[in-house]
Design a protein around this nucleic acid. Structure first.
Lengths: 192, 192
DNA sequence: GTCTATACTTTGATAGAC
DNA sequence: GTCTATCAAAGTATAGAC
């Protein structure tokens, strides 16, 4: 084994950890497993992360960044806020099948203790998402944008759960049409 | 004092196990913990259940029975299928805050191996729920009942997830109104 | 000095024996 | 119920390769 200088050790560790956490859950994955997957030494991991809790928190932060990228992608994929909401649903729908659902939601459920940092980080994420969706809904012509934002959030939460369990042939199949109908019903048609 | 045969031993064990599994998750709870909670001997547990897997399967079956009772309660609480769907949403909404979400969904995520009995039992449950909701939707005047059933399922899945994380002040707050609007939009108004 | 690899400690898991 | 066997977890320490 040649000695590899690794400036990106942290990222490589997080790559391996995230993959295993996503597939099996945090509690089901041991540090040993992550190290074996990496092919690196134990010391390196414990030098980058104080312990498993720190690793989990970093994993969750990475997940929130992934979400922010998904949101940004949806914003870039359409020009009107109505279509941007639809694009967001489409993006979530595309990535749920074959997964265990939302990583943040699953990890939140794995750490029910409200004092645990993993619980707090994921909770803050979901509060932030709710605000993001309400903000986006406020840019539509909806007379009750908060209501629209909340309804979209409910669809997204349902999409993660349903798509993971039942796959692309489940109830999640037509979530995009569902969201479109909801947005149409909640917004004022543009004058022409 | 004659030793009572305790015919309800199985139920008492399941009571204790279900409470702990619901609060902390299956992987996070040890057999020892369940035994301590029961205050009874270990051999009793292992006489009723072959091992933890068997206990988890029984727990999931109990959860599906709980769901069937919830559904039956909703059917009994209203006279039209449209209102019965709304009652179902209301029932789910009432029980999600303060929990870790849907027990079946959470346990499903804890056992990603498709060959594991816990995975199979929960998967069958969700397939059955989809059919139950479609069946109920077929009794409404909806021209596309399968679509209505699937949309209701998406709302229910979202409700479990969102209500557990954000509580009764989250996006789940007005799920009942949401469902009512969806049902109204999907059904043909009754002639009068 | 930086990395890998292994040995070790403590703790807690399932499960069986008595 | 207690006691024990077996195993794996988190984390620490250390030995050795470059």
């Amino acid at each position: 084994m040649p000695r590899t200088p690794m400036p990106d050790a942290r990222d490589r560790i997080l790559d391996a950890a995230a993959d295993l956490f996503d597939r099996y859950g945090v509690h089901a994955v041991g540090m040993r497993q992550i190290i074996d997957e990496l092919g690196c030494g134990k010391q390196l991991l414990y030098r980058e992360f104080a312990g498993k809790d720190a690793l989990v928190v970093a994993y969750l932060q990475r997940c929130t960044e992934d979400w922010d990228r998904t949101l940004a992608g949806a914003l870039a994929a359409a020009s009107t806020p109505e279509e941007q909401l639809v694009e967001l649903i489409r993006a979530v729908q595309k990535m749920t099948p074959g997964t265990r659902g939302c990583s943040l939601r699953n990890t939140h459920a794995e750490f029910p203790d409200p004092d645990h940092p993993a619980h707090r980080v994921s909770l803050e994420h979901f509060k932030a998402v709710r605000e993001q969706l309400r903000d986006l809904a406020r840019r539509t012509s909806a007379p009750h944008p908060d209501r629209l934002g909340d309804r979209i959030m409910l669809i997204i939460d349902g999409l993660y759960a349903n798509g993971a369990v039942l796959g692309e042939t489940g109830a999640a199949a037509e979530a995009v049409d569902f969201a479109r109908d909801v947005i149409r019903a909640e917004t004022v048609p543009a004058p022409r």
